[in-house]
Amino acid sequence: MTAMQGVFLFTAGLILWAAFMMVTRQNLVHAAFYLILALFGVSIIFVLLDAGFLAVVQVLVYIGAISIIMIFAVMLTRGDVIEEAPVNKNYGWALLLAALFAFGLIILIGQWPAVASLAGEIDTSRDLAAELGVALVSPEGFVIPFEVASVLLLAALVGALMVARPQKKGK
């Protein structure tokens, strides 16, 4: 077993453990912290896959923004409700469906011969961030998805403000 495999197995175990703890914790603040741990593990996986820029963006966007909004939402909506159980009454079906899905996916992955392939050499001197930047604004690349994503973000920002704004009195 090489060092890379050791790092991968450790990270994969960390991610799956954190994800499992996240979906089973009753305290939502703890769940949010386990979510941050799992997201951090995913960024380590990105580093193992030679996608350093995406790892940095993962830490910035997911851990720095999305998880913080999650924690804010948990604190704003906690109130004085005491949750009796973290799961609803259909959790048995959910467990069955998730297990069947995992089983089926792993069978499918096992049947595909290309999964045993190893990663080829990659030119580490390439500036992937610069290539991505050019691809996102070039007409041959992804300029339309990029612009649509920016409009979507603006619409989400305005929509979130409108939805979460307190109602005026007398309405």
């Binding site: 991610i15 799956l16 994800a19 996240m22 959790y91 079906w93 467990l95 469906l97």
Partner: peptide, 13 residues
């Protein structure tokens, strides 16, 4: 990871 997330979506209250 996807299936753990799926369980969380379906089962959490």
């Amino acid at each position: 990871l996807f299936c753990i997330g799926l369980y969380g979506v379906l089962a959490r209250k």
